[in-house]
């Protein structure tokens, strides 16, 4: 018994050690950028590099906000992401309802077709769209851009919500039908209220993925004032030199701050979303 206890203590201890190393491996890059973002240009060249800045240079943040349009980029991202989430839900809720509750020919094939679209490279689809939009004068058009954003997240959202609706007993629908509900009312009064956790999960996954979206705006936008933050940062990167790394770091921190805050606050939902999505495939 004593030996067994000791063995378990050793195991627990080594688990703690590995948590420490895994934590450092994943947090250190972020903390380093945070540290760079508060350094002076001179401190960037300290040899050996210092872990912490001597003083917190909030001026760096002020600089990128005043000179590099970071707030405008962030505003564009918020706008695109919010509209993408709303439009995605409007399209995906009825579609998932039909895929979960209706029986029709070719349903299996349709579901597989939806998976296939999920796997197609965004670079590949952006090229013909670029040509088409250029011809129609639709480049730099936010509404069109959002439709492409929505298309990219539709496949997994559809599968996810269809899976969620499948878990809600069909007896509830039948009871509602007896009470005189039509299909639309079944969706809005029966399925929606009982699927709130699933809808929140999809919203979060769509929001995080759309915030990260890069290829599509990179190719379909050439007007700088419309850039979302992902493209804005690459633009900032291309105009920066080694002496201004602290500004690039400050811009990077600003651009990931919203997702990190959202993520830490709603971690449980996101882990839940990723794991239920995973289990259902």
């Amino acid at each position: 018994m004593q030996r067994r206890m000791n063995k378990q203590t050793v195991l627990k201890f080594s688990l703690y050690i590995s948590y420490f190393f895994v934590g450092i491996l994943f947090l250190f890059p972020l903390l380093w950028v945070l540290s760079l973002s508060f350094k002076t240009s001179k401190e960037l060249y300290n040899v050996p590099p210092t872990l912490l800045p001597d003083n917190l240079q909030f001026e760096n943040y002020k600089h990128v906000i005043e000179n590099n349009n970071i707030l405008a980029y962030l505003g564009n991202s918020v706008q695109v992401v919010a509209l993408t989430v709303i439009l995605t839900l409007i399209i995906v809720l009825p579609a998932a309802f039909a895929l979960s509750r209706f029986k029709f020919k070719l349903k299996g094939l349709l579901l597989l077709g939806i998976i296939l679209t999920q796997m197609i490279s965004a670079v590949v689809i952006s090229i013909p769209l670029y040509r088409l939009f250029a011809e129609l004068g639709l480049l730099n058009n936010f509404a069109i851009l959002i439709i492409v954003y929505v298309a990219v997240v539709l496949p997994f959202s559809t599968w996810f919500l269809k899976g969620y609706f499948d878990t809600i007993p069909i007896e509830l629908d039948e009871a509602a039908t007896v009470d005189g509900c039509n299909k639309f009312q079944i969706l809005t009064r029966v399925l929606l209220p009982s699927s709130m956790p699933g809808i929140v999960s999809v919203t979060l996954l769509v929001a995080v993925q759309s915030w990260s979206q890069f290829v599509i705006p990179f190719i379909l936008l050439d007007m700088q004032s419309l850039y979302p933050v992902s493209v804005g940062i690459v633009n900032l990167q291309s105009t920066q030199q080694a002496v201004t790394t602290h500004y690039l770091a400050a811009g990077s921190v600003l651009s990931i701050l919203p997702v990190i805050v959202l993520f830490v606050l709603l971690q449980r939902f996101i882990v839940g979303a990723l794991t239920t999505g995973a289990v259902k495939g």
Binding site: F26, L30, W211, S212, I233, S252, I256, V259, V271
Partner: peptide, 16 residues
Amino acid sequence: AVLTAWAIPGVIIGVI
């Protein structure tokens, strides 16, 4: 800590 890396946009990961 591990999942944070998933939430960060790919381009920012490249920059970092």
